[in-house]
Design a protein around this nucleic acid. Structure first.
Lengths: 335, 335
DNA sequence: CTGTTAGCGCCTTCAG
DNA sequence: CTGAAGGCGCTAACAG
């Protein structure tokens, strides 16, 4: 691997001149610049990033923390963030927690410490202690789907979106509306679950409909979890006539459960999901669309902005729009 | 950010002693070591990785190149690789190509150059030029799902697996068997497509069944692509009685197409997929299971091994097992 | 067992 | 406009 000294030697200049020429800083005669560039090309020179970082006193890598890359939502957000970060020529260090154990290990060891210029955290509700750990790194922090003090955030209005979903069902005449949602003490703490649950309750209350706690079933954001939750709901003495699931995966599980129990969708049971997953259209699922890739992109943009203006200690908070997508999994209540 | 000099000062020793104590190298009295460790803890010291890399002359970051993190297969493989790499305390630089443009940009700029100790490439059939570019970085290279000269690889036996799938259909009495597969000139060049197509042809030929080119329909590994391909097959004057799809996504699309055309699965049409995607069981899909996460893990392991024994220029080649998973999307030919 | 010295590759003063 | 010198933080010899 050739160094800048090699380049300088080949070009017949000093290393500092070579450095200036290559980076376009200072005043350099066009002739020397050309010569240096030619030499660099010839030697296939690329600056050693460790040396550059050491002397500049900063890294340009960005840490991306994600619970599970395999889940649709996270993969989408990663794609958006990655694209923006690459476009700005930063490195992206991926950290996939992969469950409670990985999460604990991460926060214990803080492997990003001293490694990154900024951190992007996808959809983890940070405990106070975790937030403090992250803050201790003294680098800008942006979260997606969760709002932590001292950090910037990109969110959707989970509460309003959930209300909209439930309102849609209420408009169709439904009153007994089930909720399939995040686990109450989810080890991964997705805050959005709590917000969506709140929106659900508020919509019902505002419409004068009772909130029946037996219709609220926790689940784990997987198809199978949605299936189990739906089975429980449909086995109730007075089952709901409609269900709002906090993710499309769970909604799909619910559709499957209904089918296998001889309950027709939407004739006997209306179902609304959340996300507008790739498969939602396939299942004719009415759902709340959220712009997941854009959430990742926007978070990355905010982080880049924070990096370029480090003095301004301000945090930014973006709220992106959601939209109710009407498909064929919901229908008016039949009496 | 405190430096090792701060730690040394606080512990009342020289920086080199502090360094040795912290890294457990050389001979250090238990007393000094304890004092240094205490000082480091107090100052919350973490070595500056750029400085460490600069002096050691190497980075410990590993580059992971993936076409689309959002596709199930890649997300799974990334998860496996990430886990192993993290476990070995290496950084993981993610590079998501995201299509032909991103691919070209990547190979033009080679942003991993001088950044990484090794590279993991997921399921890209590398052109000779691309392979040369990668080789020019002079770091170990491991590919998953593709075999390139000079690189280690982790593969499955795509040809045999495809043969098995087709053989299963032949055993059920089918003779007209459609193939839904990779695009012939897929801009992302997935080699496995070609190998699976070969397996398909060989199985038919070995059984004395004719290979009808009109039954071979290219597609793009998406649900929708599978749907379109199936529609074309089913609209044929003499449609096939069975179909082998090169991915579960495409198989699912085919199931949907059949359903909407009034063709029953498996009574009128048997379908075999490939991958054992999370949704395969959901669709009762008979499929070829491949251990995707394990492919990622094994690739990472091989890379780590290459890094720890850089002298041995040998490449390793792992072939992992696949398995035919029988479900309800295939049935004997009805006459 | 510990301190001193030198240098990894680069960039940024500071002099010319 | 260009070169020399110094130092970023750390570790590997080399002396003690």
């Amino acid at each position: 691997m050739s160094t800048i000294t090699d380049v300088a030697a080949l070009a017949g200049v000093s290393p500092s001149t070579a450095s200036r020429a290559l980076r376009g800083s200072g005043q350099i005669s066009a002739a020397t610049r050309a010569r240096v560039e030619e030499a660099a090309r010839e030697l296939d020179y690329v600056a050693n990033p460790s040396a550059v970082r050491l002397v500049n006193g900063r890294t340009d890598a960005i840490g991306l923390v994600v619970p599970f890359v395999t889940r649709w939502f996270f993969a989408q957000a990663v794609t958006g963030a990655e694209d923006v970060i690459r476009g700005a020529d930063h490195d992206l260090l991926l950290y996939n927690l992969g469950g409670p154990d990985g999460r604990q290990r991460f926060f214990e060891r803080m492997p990003l410490r001293n490694h990154v210029a900024g951190v992007l955290v996808l959809s983890l509700a940070l405990s106070e202690k975790e937030r403090a750990q992250l803050a201790q790194m003294r680098v800008p922090l942006v979260t997606v789907g969760h709002d932590a003090p001292g950090a910037s955030s990109v969110m959707i209005d989970d509460r309003a979106a959930a209300s909209t979903a439930v309102q849609h069902l209420l408009n169709l005449g439904h009153r007994r509306i089930g909720l399939i949602g995040g686990l109450p003490e989810d080890p991964m703490h997705f805050t959005s679950s709590a917000l969506r649950a709140r929106g659900y309750r508020e919509a019902l209350t505002a419409a004068g409909a009772p909130v029946d706690e037996t219709l609220i079933v926790p689940s784990d954001y997987t198809i199978d979890g949605g299936r189990r939750a739906a089975v429980r709901l449909l086995a109730l003495p007075t089952p709901p006539t409609a269900v709002f699931a906090m993710s499309d995966e769970m909604a799909i599980g619910a559709i499957d459960a209904a089918r296998s129990m001889g309950v027709r969708v939407p004739e006997d049971l209306s179902i609304v999901g959340f996300d507008d997953h790739d498969l939602a259209a396939f299942f004719h699922l009415t759902t709340i669309r959220q712009p997941v890739q854009e959430e990742g992109r926007e978070a990355a943009r905010i982080l880049l902005r924070m990096l370029s203006a480090p003095d301004e200690a301000e945090t930014a908070h973006a709220v992106l729009d959601t939209e109710l997508i009407l498909r064929a999994s919901t229908a008016p209540l039949r009496r």
